[in-house]
Design a protein around this nucleic acid. Structure first.
Lengths: 122, 122
DNA sequence: TCGCTATATAACCATTTGGTTATGGATCAG
DNA sequence: CTGATCCATAACCAAATGGTTATATAGCGA
């Protein structure tokens, strides 16, 4: 369907996974999933200074997961979940590959079953 | 230092995402998806020293994504994709949440469409 | 203009990360 | 035993990360 036009930030799997590797940032993303929020609003629930949250936002921005707007003197952060699809895609493809190997392992185990059953180690 | 082997490793989403945030480590995982490999085998394709690869393996072990065995003087690494399910789960739940918000946004857009009136569809 | 609010940036610090080379312990081949 | 191979560990280093406080910038209200 709607293949969007502005997928510039995607493609950096490293940055996406790295961004997701921090609980504060995941919490920020979850918060943003229910709507825009200003930096101070985002900072409030975390026992952490405002600059620290700004830094986390930069990481999220860098991964393309967050876009900033301008509203009066505020810079509300808005979620852009698109790059997450990259991550999901990698994991999905990996699982496909992995399942394939699983199949191979399965065949191997079948063979072994027929050959003998030399006790498996725990 | 290390906790018990292959049981408690899951649940650390931070470690899993962090482990996935490096291209070398993702490549190692992909490699391991097609079967066990020794450290040297894993190190070969990367222009990187063996200790560097050992370090990456430690990170993967810490995330529970890799288990080590003992075969003669080798310590073959074996994939354990299970903790990836954690990551997938988080992303899936997030998308559920996000889609929910999306629904809300959708409703909002519906309203706006009706309010607008003069525009044409399509 | 003055001051308050919202945010970014700078300067600093400790810890982690990702790499290196050097070395040591096992284990295999002679 | 000797030497080669596989791997881990130590010691070291540069850069990135995650936090701090202090300050600068920009808009708002009076």
């Amino acid at each position: 369907m709607d293949q969007i036009g502005y997928s510039g930030a995607a493609g950096d799997l490293d940055a996406v996974f790295a961004a997701l590797a921090d609980p504060t940032r995941r919490a920020i993303l979850t918060r943003l999933a229910s709507g825009e929020a200003s930096v101070n609003e985002l900072a409030a629930p975390f026992e952490m200074s405002q600059p620290a949250v700004s830094k986390h936002l930069k990481v999220l921005e860098h991964a393309g997961l967050v876009a900033r707007a301008v509203d009066r003197q505020k810079r509300p952060a808005r979620l852009n979940a698109e790059p997450m699809a990259e991550a999901v895609r990698w994991l999905t493809e990996f699982r496909r590959f992995w399942s394939q190997s699983f199949d191979q392992l399965d065949s191997l185990l079948e063979e072994l079953k027929q050959t003998d059953g030399e006790g498996q180690s725990g």
